[in-house]
Nucleic acid binder design. Sequence first.
DNA 1: TTGTATTTCAAACAGGTGTTTGATACGCTT
DNA 2: AAGCGTATCAAACACCTGTTTGAAATACAA
Lengths: 212, 212
Amino acid sequence: MIEANSASEQTRTRLLEAAREVFSQHGFQSATVREICRRADANVAAVSYHFGSKDGLLAEALNFAPLKAMQLANIQTVASPEMRLHLFIRDFMLMLLDETNGSPPCRIMARELADPTPALDKIVREAIAPLHEFLGKLVREIAGDGIAEAELRRCMYSILGQCLYYRHSHPVLQRLHPKLRYSRKKIEAIAAHIADFSVAGIRHISGKTGAG
Amino acid sequence: MIEANSASEQTRTRLLEAAREVFSQHGFQSATVREICRRADANVAAVSYHFGSKDGLLAEALNFAPLKAMQLANIQTVASPEMRLHLFIRDFMLMLLDETNGSPPCRIMARELADPTPALDKIVREAIAPLHEFLGKLVREIAGDGIAEAELRRCMYSILGQCLYYRHSHPVLQRLHPKLRYSRKKIEAIAAHIADFSVAGIRHISGKTGAG
DNA sequence: TTGTATTTCAAACAGGTGTTTGATACGCTT
DNA sequence: AAGCGTATCAAACACCTGTTTGAAATACAA
């Protein structure tokens, strides 16, 4: 029987939550089914039973609704494109870095950028491609229609690269500055920097060749 | 007997070269000693015999001399700091992306940023910390002494983040643009963009608060 | 309560990993 | 050629991985 509170649905939910945690912490490959089941207080066979395989568990653990909702809210915000870029960067950084309110699926996505798994196709299709489309439009609003397609893409990559650096390089930054921790305030300061830095960069790039 | 061309030294060298290839392609964990030995045309036991362990092989495979030489040459170059930043970014990108003349140890380093292994401490100490120091001085020359330490660091991260994005996100970019390939010319175009973008960003940041 | 389908469990399985072993082959000096 | 230390090799080892198995427990309808 399909019922939200059945025993089966409860372990399913616990497994998904544990999987998001473990996958985002250790990466898909280093994460073991046994640790996920330990955290979910379930038997090792539960993953195969409920999701078919470890791959299937990852596919169901991914949930980009928050990411999409963030973009939709951004589009509907009445503000200058520069302000909306700042908002986007802040929300994106919070998803990537905030330990309490962050989005594990987004952190999984960040990991998969460099280390593909069978789920990467789904991630690209459902999360990254729409994200690029959204960000492309936003950058174009700032740069003006005169900007070339290649330059627009490079500006997008400059922004995403700055954001993702703090997640990807976290182990290194932690070693260089052991007392480092990302409070909400620090994340917002970083986001403000990236936004300022990037707007100046975009304006400079768009002012060099095109008609602005 | 210790001799450069002895049979032992030959397989040692072949193992190191194969290891750099495989580690930079698959990452340390996914790389198997069996594949490394296959490529080096050596027996599986050769790794343990010559390097003690897979960890030991990685430690010896790392060689940041090219990275250091690049920084030294940059320092000795007589040019504006903006020009030297452009040079640094170009050389760094070539090491990260150029398939024929790139530096496998640098690509390994890029991978390890996100996925630490026992070698990360050595990498941070010997490669990343000096790199940060070098880049910090260079950015300070552009920004002026008025820039705050925190802002200086964020500018450095903005630059490194942009550079590393193209390596980290390569699997995704490949999926989004299947015909993508990094020729030397394209790498130099990307480097020029990052340099222009970043100089504008640094000038904007340093002009906001400090005395420049 | 009885019967049936679903869910859980300990145990085992098959495959891959890094590493070790002991014998064999090799290079080099005497 | 004989002797010796080094290097190579096939084979095995111990461990960990995702997955499967078949029995036991549970939930639920009749």
